[in-house]
Amino acid sequence: MKENLYKYILGIADNSLILGQRMGALTGHGPSLETDIACTNISLDLFGQVRSYYQYAAKIAGDGRTEDDIAMLRKEREYVNVLLVEQPDTDFAYTMARQFLFDVYHFMFLTELQKSKDLTLAAIATKSIKEVSYHKRFSSDWIKRLGDGTELSNQKMQNAIDNLWTYTDELFHQTEADKAMVKDGIGVDVTKLKEGYYKQVIEVLEEATLNIPESKYFQKGGKEGIHTEHMGYLLSDLQYMQRAYPNMEW
């Protein structure tokens, strides 16, 4: 099997899986019916993407594993999503800040992935980018609304951005598989996205009257399978049925 390609696909898909899982959990608990529907929609889009990626990964693995086995039956150390997407929904500001900080990256990433020599990945990117452009607009709008809303909402949004900032740098970290895929013209060189990313993010934060965090201390580890303490609980829910009732069809 093409080991690096398989790993590379998981690196993309796991982000959408874990963020989709987080957003899905909010269904029915949103601050208004309209935002509730929008958050569920984001979750639905992400899971749709996840299915395309894992179906492709299952084909490459070629060992009889299905999309669900890949999504739900790995050990925590085998999930390679970035730490950002697994962060909890402390409040709606965190939810939107997490979404925004990921969406800006996600959009840039998919824009490049459309040019991949791997036609399946390029096709998934092209299909997904329309959805992600909507996510980005939605989350950017909320950054502005909350940043430039009331004093309280400004405080809360500032707090969320300050606390999640530490997870942004990891988006541009490369694993060995990433590097190999970039070399083959399949993967996206994320190091080249970094400057543009911070530029876009800062533009929105400034418009939202938020301060740009100054901290230069960043966290990473997710891409190597070393997660925050939140991850185990998230996976317990995600994997519950597959673990409790193994080898069944649903």
Partner: peptide, 11 residues
């Protein structure tokens, strides 16, 4: 959600 709705209104 109250503070969120208030913020959206103020904005």
């Amino acid at each position: 959600g109250e503070w969120v709705r208030d913020a959206a209104m103020a904005y």
